[in-house]
C-alpha cells in the first residue's frame, strides 16, 4: 500500500500546518512517511506544493510527479487547475472554493479562468468542492481555512477520528486549539 497526497495553494495559506497534521496522523498509524515542503522565495504569494507520501513498505522519492497523486488538496481554485495533471486515474481532488488572483491577472496580462470546478468535473475528475473560507469564518477565523480543508480530506481517508484529534493537539498551539477543533469538525461536515 502506497498513498500519495498533495497539498497545493498560494504561499501564506497555511499548507505547512496541513501537511504537519497529516504527517502526524500517518506516523500514529505506523507507516513509513516522507513530507516535502517549499521554503524561501516561492513562499511569497507564489504557487506552493507540499507532498506527503506514506506506505506500509519503504517510501523512496519524497516528491510526487504527474499522474501519481491519490488525493490532491487545493487551497485555491486556480491551483487545483494547475496541479490536476498530478492526479492518479480515479484520484480525489478536494478544492477550497476560493479565488485568489495571481499577479498576471491583477496586472491584466492574463484572465482568471471561468468555471474551473465545472471544467474539472467535465474532465472526469472526482471533485469535492468545499466552502472552506466560510466554514473557517464560522469557526472563528479565516486563518483556520487550512484545518477546515483537512477535516474535509479526513472524510476521504481511512484514519480514525482520534488520530486526527491527537494530531491537532500536537500541532496546534494551545490558544488556537478550540478554534481548530471546531474548524476540523466543520470541514468534516459536523455542526457543534
Amino acid at each position: 500500500m502506497n498513498k500519495n497526497v498533495m497539498i497545493v495553494g498560494v504561499g501564506g495559506q497555511g499548507s505547512l500546518l496541513a501537511s504537519k497534521l497529516l504527517g502526524h496522523v500517518v506516523m500514529q498509524a505506523g507507516y513509513d512517511v516522507k513530507v516535502s515542503e517549499v521554503h524561501g522565495m516561492s513562499q511569497r504569494g507564489g504557487s506552493v506544493v507540499t507532498y506527503v507520501k506514506y506506505s506500509d513498505e519503504k517510501v523512496w522519492s519524497p516528491v510526487i510527479n504527474e499522474g501519481e497523486a491519490d488525493i490532491i488538496i487545493s487551497f485555491e481554485l486556480l491551483e487545483a487547475a494547475r496541479w490536476v495533471s498530478f492526479l492518479k486515474e480515479g484520484g480525489t481532488l478536494v478544492v477550497n472554493n476560493q479565488e485568489i488572483a495571481p499577479m498576471p491577472v491583477i496586472t491584466g496580462t492574463a484572465a482568471y479562468p471561468e468555471d474551473i470546478a465545472g471544467k474539472l468535473r467535465s474532465s472526469g475528475v472526482n471533485l469535492k468542492l468545499v466552502d472552506a473560507l466560510a466554514l473557517a469564518l464560522e469557526a472563528g477565523s479565516a486563518k483556520a481555512t487550512n484545518v477546515v480543508l483537512m477535516g474535509a480530506v479526513a472524510n476521504a481517508m481511512d484514519f480514525p477520528e482520534e488520530m486526527w484529534q491527537k494530531a491537532i493537539d500536537e500541532c496546534v498551539p494551545q490558544k488556537f486549539l478550540e478554534l481548530n477543533r471546531k474548524a476540523f469538525a466543520l470541514g468534516r461536515g459536523r455542526r457543534a
Binding site: V10, G11, G12, M41, S42, Q43, R44, G45, G46, S47, E66, G67, L78, E79, A81, R82, V84, S85, L87, K88, E89, P102, M103, P104, V105, A110, A111, Y112, P113, I116, K119, L120, S122, S123, G124, V125
Partner: peptide, 17 residues
C-alpha cells in the same frame, strides 16, 4: 497523464506580500 485542465493557466509568481 490521466487528467489535464483544458485551457491556459495563468502563472502565479511569488510577489511582495
Amino acid at each position: 497523464i490521466p487528467y489535464a485542465y483544458p485551457e491556459a493557466i495563468p502563472n502565479r509568481p511569488p510577489v511582495l506580500c
